[in-house]
């Protein structure tokens, strides 16, 4: 297994780090989906904050099937949060933004990478403007050639598929495979399973698809090691900070 999708603990930690160091806000609250996604985010956020002698201001969970998050928003608002990390689907993000607008709560939002998707804008309208996404993938609108290729190829071969983060995710995985396979072919070795695995384990700081600095070694398969920060602005997803390593404490804590 050579996974690219990073543990959500890492994304949550990166988000918190950005809020603390770049935005200078330290009252972080977490709204999390009560499954593996949310639990990992809580783990990562707890770890990065406690490493800096801080704690989560408050955290509230919700069930996947929940559609109304106003109770959760009331809680984080009453606790005086400046920053809210929401770890759930884009529907939950949309619902949370709406609830916040209803009670006129204004703060900074962070959401997982897969919500930095045009479909989220369709749900939220301009409420999404200003939301941050810590993402292991460059934004869909970025001008890197690999992403331009994705934007060009998909409408050509799959005219019914919408461009989106999930597509870019798959594109990136396939790109990495292509990189490894080319290396294998140019090395002149037999294209066997063992040899491919050996080549994959030499991937070091490679950029593929929309991801960057991918590294695998024989004993360490935490492929993704850096994330960018994306901000939703006027219907687009803009890169506000380039690839930067994950907070070390959390990176050490996630399993290899």
């Amino acid at each position: 297994m050579f996974p690219l999708l990073p543990d959500y603990a890492l994304s949550a930690a990166s988000s918190a780090q950005y809020a603390l160091d770049v935005l200078g806000k330290d009252k972080c609250a977490l709204i999390w989906q009560n499954d593996e996604l949310g639990r990992r985010a809580k783990f990562g956020l707890d770890l990065v904050l406690s490493s800096r002698k801080k704690t989560i201001l408050t955290d509230v969970s919700f069930d996947v099937a929940t559609t109304d998050l106003s109770a959760q928003i009331q809680r984080v608002s009453a606790a005086g949060a400046e920053v809210v990390l929401l770890f759930g689907s884009n529907a939950h993000l949309a619902s949370a933004l709406r609830s916040a607008a209803r009670i006129s709560w204004k703060g900074t939002w962070f959401a997982p990478f897969f919500t930095a998707d045009p479909s989220t804008y369709e749900l939220t309208g301009d409420l999404l403007d200003g939301v941050y996404f810590s993402s292991w993938l460059l934004p869909l609108d970025a001008d890197r050639p690999a992403i331009e290729a994705y934007r060009a190829v998909v409408p050509k071969y799959y005219p019914n598929d919408k461009l989106g983060v999930f597509g870019l995710n798959g594109w990136t995985g396939a790109s990495l495979f292509a990189v490894a396979f080319e290396r294998l072919l140019s090395s002149g070795k037999e294209p066997t399973r063992e040899n491919l695995i050996a080549v994959m384990n030499t991937i070091d700081g490679v950029s593929a698809g929309a991801a960057d600095k991918i590294t695998f070694t024989a004993g360490d398969h935490r492929g993704t090691r850096q994330e960018v920060m994306i901000r939703a602005e006027a219907g687009k997803f803009r890169l506000v900070r380039d690839f930067s390593p994950y907070p070390q404490v959390v990176f050490d804590a996630v399993s290899k």
């Binding site: 099937a65 559609t67 109304d68 106003s70 949309a94 619902s95 709406r98 209803r102």
Partner: peptide
């Protein structure tokens, strides 16, 4: 519906 969004289950829930 405006408090959340429209899905096949929003209103029944």
């Amino acid at each position: 519906v405006p408090t959340t969004f429209l899905s096949s289950t929003t209103v029944t829930t």
